[in-house]
Amino acid sequence: MIKEFKDFIARGNVVDMAVGIIVGAAFTSIVKSLVDNLINPLLGIFIGKIDLSNLTWTVGEAQFKYGSFLNAVINFLIISFVVFLMVKAINRFRIKKDEAPAKPSEEVQYLKEITELLKKKERN
């Protein structure tokens, strides 16, 4: 069972996923700071309030914090857009890499030469 677990952890996709989660968490804190410190004050200029998280709507005793929801939506949109740009850049790189003609192996080259020699022999 320990060997199976070791094999599972040693697979590339599990390690890649772990790295992705760690980088994603760090990236989320950067985006949160961007939204809280740059975008919200910019939106606050137009709305008239600097801190969107304090925007509330009260009905009776219930208080709806739609400003916090707006912050979450802005965070989501920014993260989604950056991930989209990253995937687009990675796909562009992969397409170029895949389009490059692969050099045939020596075995394939020998087989082509033998085929050409046999065709020449049949013509004569």
Rank of each mutant, 00 (worst) to 15 (best):
Y110V: 10
G44Q: 05
F8W: 14
K49E: 08
G20M: 04
V23G: 02
V15H: 01
I50V: 08
T28F: 12
V14D: 02
V15G: 05
L43I: 03
S33E: 07
L70Y: 11
L38F: 15
V82G: 08
V15Y: 14
P101C: 01
V23A: 08
A89R: 01
E116W: 13
Y110I: 10
R123D: 14
F84R: 06
R92Q: 12
I95F: 11
E106M: 10
G44H: 05
F46T: 08
F46H: 09
F8L: 14
E61Y: 08
I78W: 00
Q109I: 14
A25N: 12
M1Y: 06
S68F: 08
G67H: 03
G60D: 00
K96M: 02
I50C: 04
I50A: 07
M86N: 01
E4D: 15
G20I: 05
N37K: 11
R92S: 14
S105P: 00
G60S: 03
K121A: 12
I74L: 09
L38I: 15
N75A: 05
L77Y: 09
R11I: 00
N91P: 10
I95V: 14
R92F: 10
N91H: 11
S53E: 02
I30L: 12
F46E: 04
V82M: 15
A89C: 05
F27K: 00
V82I: 15
S29A: 01
F69Q: 13
T56D: 15
K97Q: 04
G48R: 06
T115M: 06
F93V: 04
N124I: 10
F81C: 06
V108C: 03
T115F: 04
G24T: 01
Q63V: 12
I22P: 07
E116G: 13
N13M: 10
F69V: 15
K65V: 01
S105N: 01
I79T: 14
I79K: 08
L55I: 08
K120Y: 13
L43R: 02
N54S: 15
T28P: 03
L77N: 04
L43P: 02
K97Y: 03
I114F: 03
I74N: 01
E99H: 06
F93C: 01
K112W: 02
E113Y: 12
V14T: 09
V35G: 02
L70K: 03
D98K: 04
G24K: 00
G60A: 02
V82L: 15
D98C: 01
I9N: 01
K3V: 03
I39H: 00
Y66Q: 02
V19S: 14
V19Q: 12
I47T: 11
S53Q: 04
V82Q: 14
V35A: 02
N124Y: 13
E99S: 05
I90D: 06
I45W: 09
D51Q: 00
K112M: 04
I30D: 07
F5P: 04
K3D: 09
V73W: 07
F81Y: 11
E107N: 05
N54G: 13
I95N: 13
S80D: 06
N40G: 01
F8Q: 12
P41S: 00
S68K: 08
I2T: 07
K88I: 06
K96A: 03
V83G: 09
K65E: 05
F84C: 07
Y110R: 11
L52N: 00
V59W: 10
L118S: 04
D36A: 15
F84Q: 08
F76Q: 06
D7S: 14
K88Y: 10
V15Q: 12
I95M: 12
K96L: 00
